[in-house]
Amino acid sequence: MNDVGGSYTVCHDVAVPPSYALVGIQTNAGCNHGTSYTVAPASPGMRICNLSQTVGGAPYQMPFPDGYIVQTIQEVQPQQSQCGGATAIYIIQPVAEGTTACSGTQIPTGWSYTASSPSPGSCGTFERIELHQSVAGMRICSQSPYPNGFVVGAVESMAACGLQERYVLQPTSDGVKACGPTHVPAGYVITNTNQSGQCGSYQTLTLRAAYDGVVVCPASPIPDRYVIQSAVPYNGCENFTTANQLKYIP
């Protein structure tokens, strides 16, 4: 087991601080299902169990520490495992500009990945990704997360992401043009769709901050406190001849 200060042992249903990581799994008849978990404050280079909330998955998940990523996956023999016989151990590091991590790792809020490539040995069967803080104009891999304050402003095909497309991030604003795969930010609606070169094979969407009486395309999300008041003739939504007029409910 990791020799780390501040560690303690809990059953799976006990809340653990978000800055802690799972460093040991052992048999314990005093816990439901006969297993207990040792947790400790996260630190650079710590070896943690893959039951954590990251690549893989498990019936009972412990928190993955905020601000950290899985940099390496290490294979160990079952008899040498600190994690109840599990043979994959994760080595974590604090996220930093340009750092690389194993794909599937938890990615801290405000960060995206811009490249993905095979990683023989260091990440097991997972690819290695390159992390950067999300900013306007950044080109990210299509499977990367991005913050709520951005939309996909363009779609490109780039070798840096393997078989993935690359998305160009653009800040959210009233009237912004976004591509079909984008997340529509909370409180925004789709008021126009068409085909344009910036989005490749995807539709280009016009996003507006919702207001009482706004006319939205059939595929638009309906924000909280809005309802569809009526269907109206409308030629601004590709492949449709009608759209929905919304009413705000105070």
Results as ranks from 00 to 15, higher is better:
103 S>H: 07
3 D>W: 02
212 D>V: 00
225 R>T: 10
112 S>A: 15
240 F>H: 13
193 T>Y: 11
103 S>L: 05
213 G>M: 10
194 N>C: 05
42 A>Y: 02
63 P>L: 05
127 E>L: 11
98 G>W: 14
56 G>H: 06
244 N>L: 11
24 G>L: 02
137 G>P: 08
20 Y>V: 00
153 G>Y: 07
229 Q>M: 05
27 T>A: 11
72 T>P: 03
141 C>W: 02
69 I>G: 12
236 G>F: 13
207 L>M: 02
47 R>Q: 13
207 L>K: 01
64 F>H: 05
193 T>K: 13
108 P>D: 04
51 L>S: 00
99 T>A: 04
37 Y>S: 08
100 T>A: 09
196 S>Y: 00
138 M>L: 15
170 Q>P: 00
55 V>Y: 11
190 I>T: 00
144 S>Y: 01
100 T>W: 05
234 Y>E: 14
188 Y>E: 02
132 H>P: 03
156 E>Y: 09
70 V>F: 14
20 Y>A: 02
74 Q>K: 12
132 H>A: 03
188 Y>K: 02
169 L>C: 06
18 P>Y: 02
120 P>S: 10
85 G>L: 06
221 P>V: 12
198 Q>P: 06
242 T>C: 04
96 A>F: 06
30 G>L: 06
130 E>Y: 09
234 Y>I: 07
87 T>K: 12
243 A>T: 09
163 L>H: 03
230 S>A: 14
65 P>F: 07
244 N>A: 13
244 N>E: 04
232 V>R: 13
39 V>C: 11
248 Y>P: 10
75 E>L: 14
50 N>C: 09
241 T>Y: 15
91 I>T: 07
192 N>Y: 03
13 D>Q: 08
192 N>I: 00
179 C>I: 07
200 G>V: 04
183 H>K: 08
133 Q>I: 13
69 I>W: 11
27 T>H: 02
207 L>E: 01
81 S>I: 06
167 Y>S: 02
247 K>Q: 13
191 T>E: 03
92 I>H: 14
28 N>W: 01
157 S>K: 10
223 P>Y: 10
46 M>Y: 07
64 F>Q: 11
